[in-house]
Amino acid sequence: MLGYISRLFGRQESSRTAKERLRLVLVHDRASVSPELLESLKEELIEVISKYMEIDVAEMEVALDRDDDSVALVANIPVRQVKRNLAQTKH
């Protein structure tokens, strides 16, 4: 009954809230449980980006950033130089 009433007043079902909160919490839990995950992601990013530009690998940062209701993958990748002949290498 309480569920119906609160929906009438525009409140979300508590099970929805639970699921959303769980999802966010687990994004972080899982990432911190396995730093290897972020590490291997970082390595692959370097590989891909290096095809297009020269980056400062030592200064590169990849981390999960958490807001109130979202989690974002934030990458800070200093670029040293962009390859000139990108158009040619592509074709």
Binding site: L2, G3, E13, S15, A18, K19, L22, R23, L26
Partner: peptide, 16 residues
């Protein structure tokens, strides 16, 4: 409780 939306249901838990 699942029926009235006040408990995670089976699919929610499996999905997670």
């Amino acid at each position: 409780m699942v029926r009235r939306g006040d408990m995670l249901d089976i699919d929610d838990v499996i999905d997670i």
